[in-house]
Design a protein around this nucleic acid. Structure first.
Lengths: 201, 201
DNA sequence: GCTGATAGTTACTTTATAATAACTATCAGC
DNA sequence: GCTGATAGTTATTATAAAGTAACTATCAGC
């Protein structure tokens, strides 16, 4: 977690105070007024900086859509035993319950927690039984860990876009990578893993 | 406090769910959409009724200015960069911030989150940079993962009580176990790891 | 049958709020 | 002197969201 600049800290503190006192986050102009900033662009950039540093989370286009990380507040995600995918619509199967997590673990709308089944990512320190926090998205950046749907089974793999195909690389030396060519649509990316939560004992 | 009608209860429940999941309250139109009400006047009157019955509080003219009365909170743990231990009193050093977690990850009072430093537990799928949720306790059961203080450094080890000593076993084949005899008090158990939280990307 | 509380609809206006464009200023580090 | 990060201003636009008017419908209780 990066440290904010003093000015950014002021912004953060005001949001925390306001949230604590009123029960919801301030609008950009309210922040601007308090910090004696004329216009909200300055505020916007402070928020962008704070978000990049992982101190808060924002929902674009949503008024007062600011959630501070590490405050007495958390997001409630559904915990799924498995995922099934009919073309990008995630079916919530085997709903195990709900998990409250810090906003810093969640990056985006409609995230959910998926119970990890196999040991395909064991060498990336992801074990069966762990909960993977997943943000639904159809593609990813190189090196991201994604949830891939294959033969009706959801598995975790590392995502690499190469010359004319996509490589889904397990973190398990006993397993082979999957090469995915545009033609065969048998594999589908359901989302990106943004965090791991494991309960011991 | 008056009881809401069934329909009003639905409105209230949706707001509670939304608030929990997203971290802020829904807009009138979002409520309307969810309850399949066309237009937001209907919603407005439900909110007015709920407010009159003392179940929530609204700020006029403020978007998402809904605050529910009497909602439960989740647990907020301090995140420490390291721990130092003067006889069982944990000093909160290098406070990185706070992490909100589900009560299911925390087992006991005064738990905290510790940033994992080395790779002593790498084969137990605990990597450097992970956050270990720790419940302070001076002993443990066989097989538990504990935070042990040694030479001023906190490390994670697996705990085993054997004949006349305690064995602190790393999950890393390159590291040797530590044998701890009652006489030498050079190693101290600070607590037990109850959960692991990792942020990716 | 009347009344009042509850519940809903369509259409609209107003305001709150977020987002963008096009600038300037300061400061640290190379 | 150049660059990039930080910080700020004025202005404008787009959209999110709250609020209002004018209706209808159902149901419980008197």
């Amino acid at each position: 977690m990066q440290q904010p600049t003093p000015r950014q800290q002021q912004v953060y503190d005001f949001i925390a105070d306001y949230q604590q006192q009123k029960g919801y986050a301030p609008s950009l102009q309210e922040i601007a007024a308090h910090l004696k900033i004329h216009g909200n662009l300055g505020v916007m950039r402070h928020l962008q900086a704070l978000e990049k540093k992982g101190l808060l989370h924002r929902t674009a286009g949503s008024s007062r859509g600011i959630v501070l990380c590490g405050q007495a507040q958390s997001l409630r995600l559904p915990v799924l035993g498995r995922v099934a995918a009919g073309n990008l619509s995630l079916a919530f199967e085997e709903l195990e319950g709900y998990l409250c997590v810090d906003p810093s673990l969640v990056h985006g709308e409609k995230s959910f927690a998926l119970r990890v089944k196999g040991d395909s990512m064991i060498e990336a320190q992801i074990a069966p039984g762990d909960l993977a926090i997943v943000r639904p998205q159809a593609s990813a950046d190189n090196g991201d860990i994604v949830v891939a749907m294959r033969n009706g089974e959801a598995t975790l793999k590392r995502f690499f876009r190469e010359k004319d195909h996509i490589r889904l690389q397990p973190a398990n030396s006993r397993l082979m990578p999957i090469l995915l060519y545009p033609a065969d649509g048998e594999v589908q990316i359901l989302g990106k893993v943004t965090a791991i939560v494991r309960t011991l004992a």
